[in-house]
Design a binder for these strands. Structure first.
Lengths: 226, 226
DNA sequence: TTACGCAATAACGTATTCATTGTTGCATTA
DNA sequence: TAATGCAACAATGAATACGTTATTGCGTAA
């Protein structure tokens, strides 16, 4: 009735993928959660075929593990895993920052970046860590997208997703991320000045530090994994 | 009879994946090749189910595209694609080089790196570009593996694979890659000196240059894609 | 001749079926 | 009690079956 003709029918396999993904990221399927294909299929209300397809994709993206005869298992994230992930993100996002600075960003793009930095500042003033996390995510997202490199954006997204659960756990425990805001503002400045070396340098330093901070936190708090 | 008990039975889906992958990389299924699921399954001598699984994986890895009702299509690689891929490889491999230099490599590892550089030198003396390409690949492979970052190694591998066909096409046409050998040797030196900044710098510069050279070649030779 | 519409077809997405094989639990034995 | 062997079971990997729907080809009309 509504939307006559624009029936965007989503295939079951895709629906299964998004549903499982969101359950995992929301910790409704926490790290270590295990279930057979049939169990998952039943929960999703479909057959094993599209379920399997979704699980294969999630395995490729590093969120779950498939062990024959044991079904899927939601992967825990150890501090070593986080180290790997942050090393990758550091390299890739720094590339993106340099690339954006080199080719230059238009006014709209600059405005969007600045607006996300402003949101981060405001969130910090309000001690609103949820908003801060959202604005921070937006900044990183914009940055890699403005690089114009679709593959890069997609890889970064995959690893951000892998790290998402751990970040969610620690954001409340970390010191006020004042430095992050400053670093982001500096990256925007470098982009405005078309100074790609500086953009690279600043962003890399920022990612390195925040990665080390996060890993330190996880270790101190005794999260060997998850 | 032979190998009693150690029957390493490969699942059809995995066999299909490797078979298709090798056909694509060897250009037996050239860019643009198109076939339905049923056709591919018939060629592989199995049903659509494991075939489909293999195709999904190849799609995730960026080698083919799946279009409903049209089957799979081997993706062409345009110069823009190569630009994206090389930008990613530059960032990631430079990270790896820095990481290896920072944590240090043991004698065996150094020896392996040096041996691959030596092979590259020898291949160059003999004008044997196939051997050169193999030794070059080995160097890059060793480098990312010695970083100890499994995720990084695996992502690099995926993008190297995407670029493989284009590189194969151009290696015979490019100028003698003397600079590559020098750069690789310099990276090894930086690793030996535990100079991570230098390793980063040299490797990044090398990747940037060879990427630009390759893209220039593709453009000059009028390969808009493939 | 070109555009349009309809019917036949073919391909996919999903469900179901089936054989194979690893796992689990229990009974037996040292 | 702990270890071993066997039988029942359960989960997967693969094949097949089936309904839906986009595409293609042909005939008709402008």
């Amino acid at each position: 009735m509504t939307n006559p003709g624009i029936e965007a029918k989503i295939p079951y396999s895709r629906a299964a993928y998004w549903q499982l993904r969101s359950w995992i990221l929301d910790n409704e399927m926490p790290a270590g959660y295990q279930a057979t294909e049939q169990e998952v299929a039943s929960v999703l209300g479909m057959s094993r075929t599209p379920t399997r397809e979704a699980m294969l994709r999630l395995e490729n993206e590093g969120l779950i593990e498939l062990r024959s005869r044991h079904g899927m298992r939601v992967l825990p994230i150890s501090t070593d895993d986080m180290r790997e992930i942050y090393e990758i993100l550091t390299g890739l996002e720094a590339s993106a920052a340099a690339s954006v600075a080199e080719k230059g960003a238009n006014e709209t793009e600059i405005a969007e970046l600045e607006s996300s930095v402003a949101d981060m500042d405001q969130a910090l003033d309000n001690d609103d860590l949820d908003s801060w996390m959202a604005a921070d995510a937006r900044f990183h997202h914009l940055l890699v997208n403005f690089s114009g490199n679709k593959r890069l954006a997609s890889v970064v997204d995959i690893f951000l997703t892998q790290a998402a659960r751990a970040r969610k756990l620690t954001v409340k425990l970390r010191p006020k991320p004042t430095k992050s805001n400053i670093a982001h503002a500096a990256v925007v400045d470098a982009i405005k000045n078309r100074d790609s070396d500086n953009a690279w340098q600043v962003h890399m330093q920022h990612r390195k530090e925040s990665g080390e901070m996060l890993i330190g936190l996880l270790q101190d708090l005794g999260f060997p994994h998850l």
